[in-house]
Design a protein around this nucleic acid. Structure first.
Lengths: 213, 213
DNA sequence: GATGTTAGTTACTGGTCGGTAACATGTCAA
DNA sequence: TTGACATGTTACCGACCAGTAACTAACATC
């Protein structure tokens, strides 16, 4: 009862010694895994670090997830939701105007990728950390990108692009480029800020005939 | 003398038990580190794996390099030379025609990035594996990309682009995109193959007034 | 108040990591 | 032949890793 634990200010780490219900512990673990895995990498962060940040016992982790890989997959699911949440949020700003929807996503992406502690695309990162393409995490990434490309293709088609596939491919390439450049070049500098204008150029050139967006 | 070691077919691993001169061992180590670090990642590959593949003793590694980090930096130096070797090789195909030089690089890059066991940009990969931006490896990557951007800017300027910086940024973004897409989408599929056409479009649009290349 | 269930705690396993010490072995020059 | 030196070999260090076992403490239900 007399818990002498002190929470570091500004930290999301939870106090120890308190008991936590199962689903509640799961949420704490997912949140801790999200923060640590994304910032420092999936392989670099050990399960001990995750449970400590979650304020949960290690056994509780293995009661909620069968293995670290299982936790990694749950982390990816979470990131997947987050990612398409961003996408649809941008698209929702200009309903019925596919060209402007695409443009809006690049505007928003450039802003997100320019913050100081940005760590790029979580899916690219796990692809780097896992060299085995048959690993479930890699397979998940493939599906994630497939889904993104399909969504882009919907919009480029709706926008009346001369070659919707080519435009979607070009824009997909730009997205990956922004993510990578945020890590290799400095944050919020150079190429990233050029992305929206390049996207605008590609969209305009592809939709020159039919101005559907 | 009676060395019963058997070399696995197709492997570059060297036989054990033989003695190797210092600089020779260094070359074997660098080659082994290159192959393993690039294919499987810098953090994932241990020094034991490197020395085994190099056919060299672990002590020989630490006589040539002060630490694993030191070996990693040497690996990056090697990759840096290789990278700009590719760049200049493409540029050399069309001397005095900057726009065509830039285009040629994208054509060659798309081919390289489409082979089965391609593992993307080694500099992006170490940026993912090392979350600390103050790490020497990260600093090296920053300098590498700075140098690439400077070289691109030389060509876009020489090509008479309306806005050489903007074009260089756009092309730089495309390069990063090709690297990343080679890992997240399948190999030799989709967006990567679209890269040369997108690059051509960007170059043509930026150099519409003055056809210097 | 006894019981079953769940979570927390401690300690441990077997393995890998980067790095080092002590010693044996090979090669080459004098 | 002898000595010096660079190399290979074996064994080890402390630290970390993912995962588990045995036990204790809190809770709800009856």
């Amino acid at each position: 009862m007399s818990d002498s634990e002190t929470l570091k200010p500004g930290s999301t780490r939870r106090a120890r010694g308190t008991q936590t219900a199962g689903p509640e512990a799961q949420q704490h673990l997912l949140r801790a895994a999200d923060e640590l895995f994304y910032r420092e990498g999936v392989r670099s962060v050990g399960v001990d670090a995750v449970v400590e940040r979650a304020g949960v016992n290690k056994m509780s982790l293995y009661r909620q997830f069968s293995s670290k890989d299982d936790l990694v997959m749950a982390y990816l699911e979470r990131k997947d939701e987050q990612f398409f949440g961003y996408v649809e949020k941008s698209f929702a700003k200009h309903p019925g105007e596919p060209a402007r929807q695409l443009q809006q996503y690049f505007d928003d992406l450039a802003v997100r990728a320019s913050v100081e502690d940005y760590r790029g695309c979580p899916f690219v990162n796990v692809s780097v950390e896992f060299s085995d393409t048959t690993h479930p995490a890699r397979q998940f990434v493939f599906r994630n990108k497939e889904r993104l490309m399909a969504r882009l293709l919907e919009l480029t088609t709706a926008a009346g692009a001369d070659d919707p596939v080519a435009l979607a491919n070009g824009l997909g390439l730009m997205i990956e480029g922004v993510y990578a450049a945020s890590q290799t070049y400095g944050p919020g500098c150079g190429p990233i800020l050029a992305a929206p204008k390049v996207a605008a150029q590609l969209i305009a050139a592809a939709c020159s005939g039919t101005q559907a967006g």
